[in-house]
Structures are given as structure tokens and as C-alpha cells.
Amino acid sequence: MARTPADLVRAEPDPPFEITFDGRTVTALPGQSVAAALWAAGILAWRTTRHGGRPRGAFCGIGQCYDCLATVNGEPNRRACLVPARPGDAITTQEGHGHAGLAV
């Protein structure tokens, strides 16, 4: 019986690369979404809600729920389950609407 998803499909991925999550180094595989790379590192939350400040991460997994919104390289509200991870990406926990800098 397989012990990992990669074993199950006999994956031989291209060389892994590094991204960061709130400054911490996370290893990602080519072809993984940002959310997949974070899950692989045991990270399930990368956003806090606007009102309650509660942690959230991927829920629907297919780009429909927008719960997985993350700040990717400074740009807020990217759907982590769709955005492919790229070498050097800096993912940061998005607080609320992610646009605090626009407030007047």
C-alpha cells in the first residue's frame, strides 16, 4: 500500500524549489499550486478573516470558495489553490481584505 500520494502515482517530479511562507522556507514541487505546497508543509491557514480575525485556508480546492486568498509577492487576494507556486515566491498571511495600505 502506498504511503504518500507521490508513491501512489509513482511520481518522479522535476527538481523541487523553495518558496517562503511568512519568512519560513517551504519546499514546493513544480506544478503544485501555492496551496498544495503549503499543505505539503503541514500549513493549513494563510489568511485571517475581516471581522473575527479567524484563520482560514483552502476549503473547496477548486477556486470557488475564495477562502484560500493569500498575499503572493505582495499582491493580496490571490487564490492559493489556483496560483502555481514559482521559485522564490513570498507568501504572506493575508489579514482581512488585504488592502490596509489603501485606507484613508
Binding site: R50, N77, G96, H97, H99, A100, L102, A103, V104
Partner: peptide
């Protein structure tokens, strides 16, 4: 629009 802080007063 998406939720924003106060950008228009």
C-alpha cells in the same frame, strides 16, 4: 467591488 478599507470618504 471586493471588500476594501475606507478608500472613498
Amino acid at each position: 467591488t471586493e471588500p476594501l478599507p475606507r478608500v472613498v470618504r
